[in-house]
Amino acid sequence: MIDLKQVSKSYPKGIHALTGLDLHIDDGEFVYVIGATGSGKSTLVKILNAEEIPDSGSVIVDGVDVGHLKHRKVPKYRRNIGCIFQDYRLLPSLTVYENIAFAMEAVGASKKEIKKRVAEVLELVDLKEKAYSYPDELSGGQQQRVTIARAIVNQPKVLIADEPTGNLDPEKSREIMSLLEKINETLKTTIIMVTHDSAIVDEYKKRTIMLDAGFMVHDFAKGGYKSL
């Protein structure tokens, strides 16, 4: 499903964000990516998301050669990848409903389909009563749930989350985690989640990959910080 071979990425000024990364993730897996700040976690997410182009190596996601994707082809690829960011990235001038609907409009879904599907995902993330609020009228946890709803509305095969609980208190973080687990279990969506939160990693044990200065230093099937 996801296959990275010898992937390297460096930024100007000689920063090696990722070096020779080999990584294989099967369909339906739930994987944490952990590591100190600056270790290359977000860079990995951006490469998977086609936001950054790797310098070398191959990145195959669902049969698509992401490393060599043309600018024009990026949108179509992204519709198969749901993305969740720490800073939410919601359109401020659209309501919660419109924000989620936008992702479906971009695909050209019919109005009827959109209405039905958006109601479903709003139900799933438990935000029905906030459908007509604007993002700045919501709490951080609620906004994060909107981005999750938006990320899964087109039923992507892969969900990538870059510190989805980064701005949330432990209780809200648990809410998000159960939601992600639910999505992983019921929809069989592959989930890659970058996190700093050791409590979460210990509580919800998953396969855990650790980066350090751009190198992958651990890959534990059992997971948990304590086992490191």
Binding site: N49, E51, R72, V74, P75, K76, Y77, R78, R79, I81, C83, F85, R89, L90, L91, P92, S93, F102, A103, E105, A106, V107, R150, N154
Partner: peptide, 15 residues
């Protein structure tokens, strides 16, 4: 920023 958010959601350039 709206434009870049639209792109992260998979909206095509023309859309």
């Amino acid at each position: 920023s709206e434009i870049s958010i639209m792109r992260t959601v998979g909206a095509s350039s023309s859309f």
